[in-house]
């Protein structure tokens, strides 16, 4: 039984589409109800919170997984990043009200000590530390966009897809930190011991991409 871990939430549909393109059976996944472990034709699917997907892979519970690049970066887990699917695309950005955005146009001394709300403390810390900017972080688990409006923070680091939630909260993008998309990941053990099965899946994905963009990547 080959075990695949998939993230729940908004990216699950993207993940299922990727599997469908690879002819992996997804009938039961689509009609999953409240089930979190689903078996279908030699595959076992584990549905986990996005931030937990790397943990299932790291401990060898799942042979292969689809995980967002934001989650891989934030958890810092040591995984094998096999292929970027390009699906579930969005961006991690630094965003804030116009007044705060204008501060970032000037000397960095003007933004020292700002308060930044985020559910990505590791990514945010690395971003500001690399620029030598000392800020204060507020770790939230959701609804990050309302933090500046309510005076909890000056700006935010969060993921943005269309930007409509930012606009609705009178925020604009100050800086793009990184693009985000779903990636195929595995553990180091699975890479060695389940290589044939992984190669088949990733190889199929590479072939479908090659047909689409003329690229000749093999893995």
């Amino acid at each position: 039984m080959f075990t695949l871990c998939l993230p729940t939430g908004r990216v699950l549909e993207d993940a299922i589409e990727v599997l469908q393109e690879l002819d992996i059976p997804t009938g039961r996944l689509k009609e999953r109800g409240r089930s979190l472990v689903i078996q279908e034709e030699g595959f076992r699917f584990l549905l986990a919170k996005p931030m937990d997907v790397p943990v299932y892979v790291h401990y060898g519970i799942a042979d292969l997984a689809l995980a967002g690049s934001d989650v891989i970066w934030e958890t810092g887990a040591s995984l094998v990043e096999l292929r970027d699917t390009g699906r579930g695309a969005c961006r991690i950005v630094l965003a804030g009200p116009k007044k705060v955005a204008s501060l970032f146009l000037g000397h960095e001394s003007r933004v020292m000590g700002l308060r930044v709300a985020t559910k990505y403390p590791r990514i945010a810390e690395e971003y500001f530390a690399e620029r030598g900017i000392q800020v204060e972080f507020v770790h939230l688990n959701g609804s990050i966009e309302m933090a500046p409006r309510l005076g909890l923070s000056d700006c935010i680091v969060d993921i943005v897809q269309t930007g409509s939630t930012l606009r609705a909260n009178a925020l604009s993008v100050i800086a793009e930190i990184a693009p985000v998309s779903l990636k195929f990941v595995s553990s180091r053990k699975s890479l060695q011991l389940a290589w044939n099965a992984i190669e088949e899946i990733i190889g199929k994905f590479a072939s479908s991409k090659k047909a689409g963009d003329g690229n000749d990547k093999a893995l």
Binding site: V57, Y59, G60, I61, S78, R188, K189, S190, Q192, L193
Partner: peptide
């Protein structure tokens, strides 16, 4: 070389 065995995902 690296050595793998068992259920853990790491070597």
């Amino acid at each position: 070389f690296e050595i793998f065995s068992g259920n853990a995902g790491v070597s």
